[in-house]
Amino acid sequence: MTGTLPRRAAAEFTGTALLVAAVVGSGIAAARLSPADVGLQLLENAIATALALGALILIFGPVSGAHFNPVVSAVDWWLGRRAGTGLSGRELAGYLPAQVAGAVVGAALANVMFDLPAVAWARTDRTGGHLWLAEVVATAGLVVLVFALARTGRTGAAPAAVGGYIGAAYWFTSSTSFANPAVTIGRAFTDTFAGIAPASVPGFVVAQLAGGLVAIGAIALWFPDAARDAGDVVVPPLSPETVRQ
């Protein structure tokens, strides 16, 4: 990885905050604009999230790689640890708290933008084996996608591919595809359309971590040399000198 860790961690913090602000804010707007149609609300929420995610990858990818997700960062560290690619242990320790803190701030920001209390614990229970299975599937698919793009030299497609995958997974998973422990924690801080009750968070996070393990196995099977390109996930960060040119 290139650039200073504080600079990259700040990008992960801000990118994750804006991602959660997009998820929560679009959910609030959808519920207000289409109060009688939950399906339309979900469509509006999914489209806004997919588009925002693609844009955020374009903004912050050159700085930090645009992980915005502890599972992506952890798998990046795990696969690249022996090859010296991807995140180091120190970098992982900087990324994870930045992502979680950013997610909480992003939820509060969305709440305030819509004239709601900055923090309101969610009351939407999301629990059950079918939802946990959906989170395993959604998270594994996301991680395999970003490593497949890196291994095959197609990271330029990451903004559209990752945004498209998350937008689609809103619909083909019963959990509406949180697929991200930081985002899951952040969404516990908003009692709105996108919220998740704090008591439901641990089950989702465990399922997402399991999805990361499934992804490691799938990557080893389908892309056995993926460790060589771990430093290019989600997109290759640029050195500060290159960014200034």
Rank of each mutant, 00 (worst) to 15 (best):
G167A: 11
I185L: 14
T176A: 14
S175G: 06
A199S: 15
R187L: 02
I196T: 14
Y170L: 07
G195D: 03
Y170P: 06
N180L: 06
A199R: 15
Y170C: 05
T190Y: 01
I185Q: 00
F172A: 09
Y165K: 04
G164A: 08
T173M: 01
G167T: 12
T173K: 02
Y170T: 07
A197S: 11
A197M: 05
S175T: 02
Y170W: 12
S174T: 15
D191I: 03
R187F: 00
A169D: 09
Y170A: 09
S175N: 08
T184E: 10
I166V: 15
T176K: 13
A179K: 04
A199E: 14
A197Y: 00
G186T: 03
G195T: 03
T173E: 01
T192A: 11
T184L: 10
S174G: 15
Y170H: 14
S174H: 13
G167H: 10
G195H: 04
G167W: 07
A179W: 06
W171M: 15
W171T: 12
S175I: 02
T176N: 15
P181I: 02
F189A: 14
A188I: 01
N180E: 07
F189Q: 07
N180P: 07
Y170F: 15
T190G: 11
V183E: 03
F178L: 14
I185C: 01
A188F: 00
G195K: 01
F172M: 13
Y170Q: 11
A194R: 02
P198S: 08
A188C: 11
D191A: 13
A194I: 01
S177H: 11
I166P: 05
I196V: 15
A168C: 08
T176V: 13
A169N: 11
N180D: 12
S177L: 12
T184S: 14
F178S: 12
P198Q: 06
A199Q: 13
Y170R: 08
I196P: 04
A194H: 00
G195L: 04
N180I: 07
A179G: 04
S174C: 10
A182D: 08
A169H: 08
S174A: 15
V183T: 10
I185A: 05
T184P: 11
I196K: 03
D191K: 05
F189S: 09
P181N: 02
A168S: 13
S174L: 15
W171Y: 15
W171G: 09
T173D: 06
D191R: 02
A182Q: 09
T173Y: 02
I166N: 05
W171F: 15
G164T: 10
S177E: 10
I185T: 05
Y165D: 04
Y165N: 08
A199W: 11
S177F: 12
I185S: 01
A179N: 09
T184I: 08
R187Q: 03
F189L: 12
I196W: 05
F193H: 11
S175E: 06
G195N: 06
F172E: 07
A182E: 09
I185R: 00
I166H: 06
I196S: 10
F172T: 12
A188L: 04
G195M: 03
F172V: 14
A197N: 04
G167I: 11
T184Q: 08
V183D: 03
S175A: 14
A199V: 13
